[in-house]
Write a protein that binds this DNA or RNA. Structure first.
Lengths: 136, 136
DNA sequence: TCAGTACTCATACTAAAGTACCAAAAACAC
DNA sequence: GTGTTTTTGGTACTTTAGTATGAGTACTGA
């Protein structure tokens, strides 16, 4: 969050500087009006694309709602299991990668199904993605 | 595709007009350099955001790769079943909504698993989303 | 019309997934 | 340090999921 504020502040300052600079450059007769307008247009065009890309990244994709996870009472281990499930692994495979027994995974999955109000792991995946607690 | 070309052509023409207009407005003394530059900056900023949003929509989201579906030899019915699976329904539930027997669904699912090179339905969902044959 | 493909369904089976209940370490908060 | 939650694991069971095989029907292109 601090980083975002910093980047935006720097951006605004840079744009204001550009603004002033272009005005000076034009008034002092170094540049024609076409070039000044062209440069301004290109710069703001690129800035628009950049800002939009950043905001979309946070909104749509990789943003995970940690509050929601807490609200639902999903523990760390349970969440780890949920992630593995969403990648299409079986209970046995998850047990092996997390160095646990299959029984443990079954317990975690069962708890997850209750907490996500689902009857099947596929349904749990769907719900989790809709609730933005899993990357879409 | 035709629509895209049209929109872009109109956009470019509008921007060129704006460009010329701003130059004329300034030279004729109606507007100050600050206002001209400001308007140009805002317009190009908005255009940048708009174009970026459009391109990202097509790239990342709701675009379904029908070619890929055909390549994999997935039939219409099979694809319908795949969609239902990805929504978290059981074979029985899918059978009921499509007015088929559970046996038929099992056959379709089995074929899907072969065609998507998967061992489980959850894995099939993952692969299908990566291949962009299911909405992400 | 005939071959090929897609679609449907059944049986019989194996393999996962999921439930219910219990219980003991381990981590954590107060 | 005591109570609470988390994590781990087990047994025994039911329910889904998935495989293998066969077979009839419907549609489609040559």
């Amino acid at each position: 969050m601090k980083k975002t504020v910093f980047v935006f502040s720097a951006l605004i300052i840079a744009l204001l500087l550009l603004f002033k600079l272009s005005r000076y450059a034009y008034l002092s007769g170094d540049l024609s009006i076409e070039i000044v307008i062209g440069v301004i247009a290109i710069v703001f065009f690129v800035v628009g694309i950049y800002i939009n890309k950043k905001s979309l990244q946070k909104e749509k994709n990789h943003f995970i709602d940690h509050k929601k996870i807490e609200e639902l009472g999903i523990s760390k281990r349970e969440y780890e299991v949920l992630v593995q499930i969403s990648k299409g692994f079986s209970n046995k495979e998850i047990a092996d990668t997390l160095f646990l027994s299959e029984s443990t995974i079954k317990t975690h999955v069962s708890n997850l199904l209750v907490k996500l109000d689902s009857k099947r792991r596929t349904q749990a995946i769907e719900k989790a993605k809709n609730l933005q607690i899993l990357p879409i």
